[in-house]
Design a protein around this nucleic acid. Structure first.
Length: 508
RNA sequence: GACCCUAUGGUCUAGCGGUUAGGACACCUCCCUUUCACGGAGGUAGCCCGGGUUCGAUUCCCGGUAGGGUCGCCA
């Protein structure tokens, strides 16, 4: 079973690469269990003439055209982001075109701001689109020759198509709405990921298989506009979430009704919550914006998303974008849903954060402090950079940074309560005094000589190094962990360090 | 309720009839170390169940179970 399905994948893909557009006018390739190809005339079940030239493009494209068609709901779902990523990867891999189309048919919940969330999210991830809107304004500028790229601006097309359907008896009015005459026979959905899916009618559909394509208020419905836009934008591959799989039967029927062979379909598995439940809007981690806000790096998010439902093989986990584009292809996409593993994302984030180029690291770090209300610009640039250098590679997300290194930029040191109880004890008081004196007389206030000073003090007192280290760290940073102690002392400088030690000594 | 998809450690996955079932994250132990992190060494843990097919099934087929999706004048 699997074998013949896979052989069909190859045949279909080959077709997609080389004859992506000419297939529009050709029969649909299907496979038989013996692996040979058969052809089924896509128009076999329709008895009308295909649309005139004004509705069907005469262009002959060799490269795939894919699209991401989100609805502006005010946020970009992480699953949607991955769908966009897979589309983008396939386009880049195959040298095709990535189209961004905004499905804003539901006027009530659309706004320019909601579109901007999508645009900025995709831009953040680095998923540039070859065609689509340039701004969130539905009537604003766009690039590409298949526009408009907002469905709200394409009403005439839908109206014309509906009238065509009506005149050919393929749709009818019902209580003010327009319904499409859906076939009752099972629909075969050729899918590049899953294989041939034979979709039968459900019990409710048995009663009435027809579905509304235009509401009684005149607004076209998703299934209709989605198909018309894909058709008119010459989309060759529809790569979308598996939640659309069952509905694809309707779309294929619609394509047939318009006299055109449907595009290739690739339904990708969904992303579930860590506990296996469906990831909905309200779930933690569902919104892409959240990752930006938490200080994740887009390259980490992209890398992680790639690993959900697709594998680069060869035991690779961390990949550059170029490597991913090179390796990515539709047949290797997994068929089962994946759970979102936050820990693994965090690991990748740490990997990328450690390797950040200095300038970008400083920029992101300064930004994270600004977000937490700390203006690092009031400190000398050299001081800020030196401080940040001691933190690189020691934390994962940038939202951790203000908590990790905030002591560099404030004199209000709050001691960790538990640590103070343990380290600010009477016997440590004279030890800290000795350390203060040793620091005061160190030949230089550098990490090297401070380390020598501290170790010699410990030796003189007959205690382990740690006995000196912990109270000292607590005194100058208020925390039990952080950057290298000697280095942070050097960066803070003698004045700050001495003052903080005095203050600590006065507190116990 | 019906229809569709799926099923390898806790998680992401490699595997495409014969393997000591591989890697990564997480977890545990140890080493390194001023803390944390990194790095190094090692460890616990897996083929959902039941039938077939086969000399031989994680792998192929059927059934069950479980999870997910769909059946809207939402997208």
């Amino acid at each position: 079973m699997r074998l013949w399905q896979r052989s069909r994948f190859k045949a279909t893909l080959w077709l997609s690469r080389n004859e992506a557009q000419t297939q529009k006018d050709r029969p649909l390739p299907l496979a038989k269990p013996n692996g040979s190809l058969i052809f089924e005339n896509a128009r076999a079940q329709v008895s009308f003439q295909p649309p005139d030239d004004s509705l069907s493009s005469g262009h002959n494209f060799m490269k795939p055209r894919v699209r991401f068609a989100p609805s502006p709901t005010g946020y970009l779902h992480i699953g949607g982001a991955r769908t966009a990523l897979f589309n983008w990867l396939y386009a880049r891999h195959a040298g095709g075109t990535f189209v961004l189309r905004i499905e804003d048919t539901d006027a009530a919940r659309n706004s320019q701001e909601a579109v901007d969330v999508i645009l900025s999210g995709l831009r953040w991830l680095g998923l540039d689109w070859d065609e689509g809107p340039l701004t969130g304004d539905a009537t604003g500028p766009s690039k590409g020759s298949f526009g408009p790229y907002f469905q709200s601006q394409r009403k005439d097309n839908y109206q014309r198509r509906v009238e065509g359907l009506l005149s050919r008896g393929l749709a009818y009015e019902h209580e003010g709405a327009i319904k499409f005459k859906m076939q009752r026979e099972p629909v075969t959905i050729p899918d590049l990921v899953i294989g041939d899916v034979i979709r039968k009618l459900t019990d409710r559909e048995e009663i009435d298989p027809d579905f509304v394509i235009q509401r009684s208020d005149g607004q076209p419905v998703f299934h209709l506009v989605n198909v018309i836009d894909d058709l008119e934008m010459n989309i060759t591959h529809v790569i979308r979430g598996e939640d659309h799989l069952s509905n694809t039967a309707k779309h294929i029927a619609l394509f047939k009704a318009f006299g055109v062979a449907p595009p290739h379909y690739a339904h990708i598995p969904l992303i579930l919550n860590g506990d296996g439940s469906k990831m909905s809007k309200r779930d933690q981690g569902a919104s892409l914006t959240g990752y930006l806000d938490q200080g994740f790096l887009p390259e980490a998010v992209v890398n992680f998303l790639c690993l959900l439902g697709w594998s680069p093989k060869e035991n690779r986990e961390k990949l550059t974008l170029a490597e991913t584009i090179e390796r990515f292809d539709l047949p290797q996409i997994l068929r089962h849903n994946a759970r979102f593993d936050y820990e693994k994302l965090l690991w990748l984030q740490g990997e990328y954060a450690r390797e950040l180029a200095d300038d970008r690291f400083y920029e992101l770090a300064v930004h994270s402090f600004a977000r937490s209300g700390v203006d690092t610009n009031v400190f000398p640039l050299g001081y800020v950079k030196a401080a940040l250098d001691t933190c690189k590679g020691k934390f994962k997300t940038f939202s951790e940074l203000p908590g990790y290194a905030g002591f560099y930029f404030t004199e209000k040191i709050e001691y960790d309560a538990e640590a103070a109880k343990k380290d600010f004890v009477p016997e440590n008081h004279p030890r800290l005094e000795k350390l203060r004196d040793a620091f005061a007389h160190a030949p230089a206030f550098s990490a090297e000589s401070l380390e020598v000073a501290l170790k010699e003090t410990a030796k003189a007192l007959g205690v382990k190094v740690g006995v000196m280290v912990h109270p000292c760290r607590l005194a100058v940073t208020g925390k039990t962990s952080g950057p290298s102690l000697y280095h942070l002392l050097q960066v803070l400088g003698k004045e700050r360090v001495m003052a903080r030690i005095e203050k600590a000594l006065a507190s116990f």
